[in-house]
Design a protein around this nucleic acid. Structure first.
Length: 572
RNA sequence: CGGGGCGUGGCGCAGUUUGGCUAGCGCGCCUGCCUUGGGAGCAGGAGGCCGGAGGUUCAAAUCCUCUCGCCCCGACCA
């Protein structure tokens, strides 16, 4: 490709609305352009990187017996009604009607449509395991699209679905995908750490997310430096420590204190001069229409996912002001467990608390010296809090550390949730009908590219790993007006092409500074500079983008040197 | 959805508080000259119904109303 013809409009200045490095660089380097909030057009260079990631994914999916299909983006509502998700998915689903008034959606994911496809064709255990995947656009009307490709409303995703005869076979599919993922991300040039995760709306119980650690990540990951434990904060367990006391604690007298205007733990602890960890946070929820209270220590955050699991409820939301007033007799900010006539669920940490500060269920008042058993009873103690860095590891003696992560992939064991709901069954060797046991496995393709850039850039621009670089090499004649240079550039360009190297010739009549800046910004792993001085000596200069290392190479050896550099991965 | 901010040429911004006559600046773009190892220089030039609609006024980028779009923070932690 000639640089003069390449449609890659680079930007000298950083677009104002791009916040993180990958977003800024993808715009500046001319990889993509925004078309609407959370929607992007890919330009030639961006598309080439995307395609390379897709190709790596294909190879690894095929290697574990995956077969590629392409499913519709526009999906009929009926299928989603069968699985029950037409209602569940809510505002995040793009919905549309055809001219007959039939309802459709733009697929946010494809469990329904693939299950429908497979149920009508697969009848026998002999036809499984079946592993089908696609690389397709997905649509989610995100509440808040941001950070370019990190959280878009339209995004490219590889999704594989596995269909197996039983749990054991699913396990094999699951771990095959898990290990394929590790290979995929490694080949793309990023480290992606598998962490235990929550399965969210998709369902299922066993699931891992693959996280690229980066400060710009939207997820918080907790991991143990001493063992293998790593989990998304949504999932991370907090351990119950036994209550051990040398002697009976001295219980203070329950007393009411005026706390005008103090509604938050911060305000209360400030006002009463107590530590947040000596306060109990009383949160009122409506679970399937029933009002309950959840208690956590003042300095802890509740984990609603854990609460939801404990209660086993369909819907769970924080109570509104009116409900709170009805249940407690006080406005928001003054709820407490003492005298509260609704079921109380408390985090394990609350077991340890003595002489706690709690809301008094009365405007502008709190209670001091509230104590378990004596002053209030708790229905159930459970792990309800959000784990945080510094917490003990649930698996060993270590302490958890925290890091931010970009979720580039997730693998799920779905079980029979969809196959049961949608009647995807088969006959086993005894002629007995059973639901297929499913798994699903996603990779955000664009997000992976963005994550790679987050981890591979410097002040000058992108530093592509060779494996997904849009092009491997850029040949830069310093001056196109110099015939010897122009000719040598053209010749090298042709030789590299003949050798199968993906190469761009910067044939623009620009000053060298401009060409170098663009080359660095776009991030070609290797640059060959052809200048008059070196050329007179019959040499060219090879620069490695990642290290900045320069080497003067005899013109005759340039192609073989580059081939070796690309092969041994020194430029990665 | 709540809070904050922003919409002025392809990009980055000034001008808006205190309405005023040809709407500016830098980058980019076009032409010519010149220059060629890290975003050169000189000269000339193109390009903007100031997001949109309505209103106030002799006069609106500027004031008022409505609307659309975008960005950031938060989204129930009492």
């Amino acid at each position: 490709m000639y640089m003069s013809q390449l449609y890659s409009p680079t930007l000298r200045e950083t677009p104002a609305d791009a916040e993180i490095a990958s977003h800024q660089l993808m715009l500046r380097a001319g990889l993509m352009r925004r078309s609407a909030a959370g929607m992007y057009a890919f330009l030639p260079l961006g598309l080439r990187a995307i395609r390379k990631v897709e190709q790596i994914i294909r190879e690894e999916m095929n290697a574990i017996g995956g077969q590629e299909v392409l499913l519709p983006i526009v999906q009929p509502a009926e299928l989603w009604e069968e699985s029950g998700r037409w209602g569940d998915y809510g505002d995040e689903m793009f919905r549309l009607k055809d001219r007959q008034g039939r309802q459709f959606c733009l697929g946010p994911t494809h469990e329904e449509i693939i299950t429908a496809l497979v149920r009508s064709e697969v009848r026998s255990y002999r036809q499984m395991p079946l592993r089908l995947y696609q690389i397709q656009n997905k649509y989610r009307d995100e509440i808040r699209p941001r950070f370019g490709l990190m959280r878009g409303r339209e995004f490219i995703m590889k999704d594989m679905y596995s269909f197996d005869r039983d749990e054991e076979a699913l396990d094999a599919s699951y771990w095959a995908a898990y290990h394929a993922y590790a290979r995929i991300f490694a080949r793309c040039g990023v480290e992606a750490h598998p962490v235990e995760a929550d399965s969210g709306a998709i369902g299922g119980d066993v699931t891992h997310e693959f996280m690229v650690l980066a400060d710009s990540g939207e997820d918080l990951v907790l991991f143990c430096p001493k063992c293998e434990y790593a989990a998304n904060v949504e999932r991370a367990e907090s351990v119950r420590t036994p209550v051990q006391r040398e002697e009976k604690p001295e219980l203070g007298e329950l007393a009411k204190a005026a706390t005008p205007g103090a509604r938050t733990i911060e305000q209360i602890s400030e006002f009463l001069q107590v530590k947040p960890e000596d306060c109990i946070k009383t949160l009122l929820y409506v679970a399937d229409g029933k009002v309950i209270a959840a208690l956590v220590r003042g300095d802890h955050n509740i984990n609603e996912i854990k609460l939801r699991k404990l209660l086993g409820c369909e819907t769970l939301e924080l109570a509104d002001d009116e409900t709170i007033f009805k249940a407690t007799g006080a406005p928001v900010g003054f709820a407490g467990p003492v005298g509260l006539k609704i079921p109380l669920y408390a985090d394990y940490a609350v077991e340890h608390m003595v002489n706690a500060v709690v809301g008094a269920n009365e405007l502008d008042h709190h209670m001091l010296n509230a104590n378990l058993e004596r002053d209030f009873q708790v229905e159930v103690f459970a792990d309800l809090r959000e784990a945080q860095p510094g917490d003990p590891c649930p698996r060993c003696e270590g302490r958890l550390e925290g890091a931010r992560g970009i979720e580039v992939g997730q693998v799920f064991k779905l079980g029979t949730k969809y196959s049961r709901a949608m009647g995807a069954t088969f006959l086993d060797e005894n002629g007995k009908e059973a639901p297929m046991v499913m798994g699903c496995y996603g990779i955000g393709v664009g997000r992976t590219v963005a994550a790679v850039i987050e981890k591979n850039h410097d002040d000058d621009g992108i530093i592509w790993p060779v494996s997904i670089a849009p092009y491997h090499v850029i040949v830069v004649p310093v001056s196109m007006k110099d015939e010897a240079q122009a000719e040598a550039g053209q010749k090298l360009y042709e030789e590299l092409q003949a050798a199968g190297v993906e190469v761009v010739l910067d044939d623009r009549n620009e000053r060298p500074g401009v060409k170098f800046k663009d080359a660095d910004l776009i991030g070609f792993p290797i640059r060959v500079t052809i200048g008059s001085k070196s050329l007179e000596q019959g040499a060219m200069e090879i620069t490695i983008r990642r290290t900045g290392e320069k080497m003067l190479v005899p013109a005759a050896d340039v192609v073989s040197t580059i081939e070796n550099l690309l092969k041994d991965g020194e430029t990665r």
